[in-house]
């Protein structure tokens, strides 16, 4: 009788522990999704801003057709991208195209004096920053979630219920890679 009670108690504890593990995995997966939607809002906002930018700049930068077309093209490719990895690559290309354009703009004082353009440039810069900051938050979440999926004992639950690892959102950030390492010591 006593052994039966003990065995039942142990089984109950194990079941409740497994339920807890499952729930924590679900919670983490939702956090990853939430972090992703934060990035998505900013990416969408950037896609919305670009037509306005092209429209405003078109009249001023007649000799830079190619730069503007590159932006439009990169935008449509980014909007069509499916998986997180593809999206990251396409959005990285878009970031490059935009920053190239902003360098070109330096040669057009008339455009730089346009209030509409300045407001758009500010919005784009800010969106760019917001993407970078929410990307950090997203990648932190993904790292934590993937660790849980791979580590014992939660990996068993993850395998049983088909929890898949999430993809990191890695932009090709040139400025980041080229940050010079200087040591005066």
């Amino acid at each position: 009788m006593v052994t039966l009670v003990v065995v039942l108690a142990v089984i109950f504890i194990i079941i409740f522990y497994l339920i807890g593990l499952f729930n924590s995995l679900v919670r983490l997966r939702n956090q990853v999704k939430n972090a992703w939607s934060q990035i998505d809002v900013q990416l969408k906002r950037r896609h919305d801003l670009i037509p306005n930018l092209v429209e405003t700049a078109k009249g001023y930068v007649k000799h830079e057709r190619g730069t503007l077309e590159a932006i439009t093209e990169a935008r449509s490719r980014a909007m069509g991208a499916g998986s997180v990895g593809d999206k990251a690559k396409a959005e990285g290309a878009l970031t490059d195209a935009i920053s190239k354009f902003f360098v070109v703009v330096e040669n057009y004082p008339d455009l730089k004096a346009n209030q509409n353009f300045l407001a758009l440039q500010e919005e784009l810069t800010s969106t760019e920053n917001k993407i970078a900051f929410s990307r950090q938050a997203y990648n932190d979440q993904v790292l934590y979630f993937n660790n849980r999926i791979q580590m014992f004992p939660s990996n068993m639950i993850a395998g049983m219920f088909g929890f898949q690892q999430s993809e990191f959102f890695e932009l090709e950030d040139k400025a980041e890679r080229q940050a010079p390492k200087v040591d005066f010591n």
């Binding site: 934060q38 407001a119 500010e122 919005e123 810069t125 800010s126 920053n129 917001k130 900051f133 929410s134 950090q136 938050a137």
Partner: peptide, 16 residues
């Protein structure tokens, strides 16, 4: 001041 609002929003995201 749009820029000020943007910057505050950025830092809100960065700091969570």
């Amino acid at each position: 001041h749009q820029q000020l609002f943007n910057v505050v929003d950025e830092m809100k995201i960065a700091a969570g």
